[in-house]
Nucleic acid binder design. Structure first.
Length: 108
DNA sequence: ACGTTGACCTATA
DNA sequence: GTATAGGCCAACG
């Protein structure tokens, strides 16, 4: 397991309940800005990881749940978010600007 | 070994 | 405001 994925999972686990962040934000925090797709790959691999990774709290820059299909079933991601108090509408997070959690600012 | 793909982002038209 | 293009780099076939 390379350090990159390890760090990604570490950051994702630090996301507070009811908050969300973006792939790009994580990529910038890890110093791999521009390669945000790799964060997506990391999430893809997170599925068969031992440690639980709340990938549903990670959305794209637009606040849209683009990766919901990669969960068990589409709609499961929304359900998980709603369960944590996040309002999801039209495949997007309502009030994304307010709920956005920036690892740069929060984790310093 | 090579071409294609992808849970993205930014820029330009 | 939507549309298209380019860049990024690891994994898959």
């Amino acid at each position: 397991m390379s350090d990159f994925y390890q760090k990604v999972y570490e950051v994702v686990r630090q996301i507070p309940v009811g908050r969300v962040t973006s792939y790009g934000a994580i990529a910038r925090y890890l110093g791999t800005a521009g390669s945000s797709r790799m964060v997506g790959w990391a999430m893809n691999l997170s599925h068969h990881q031992e440690a639980y990774v709340p990938a549903h709290r990670v959305v794209n820059r637009n606040g849209l749940l683009t990766g919901k299909i990669h969960f068990g079933s589409p709609g499961e991601m929304e359900e998980l978010l709603e369960n944590e108090g996040v309002v999801v509408e039209n495949d997007g997070v309502t009030g994304f600007d307010r709920l956005f959690w920036d690892p740069m600012k929060e984790l310093r």
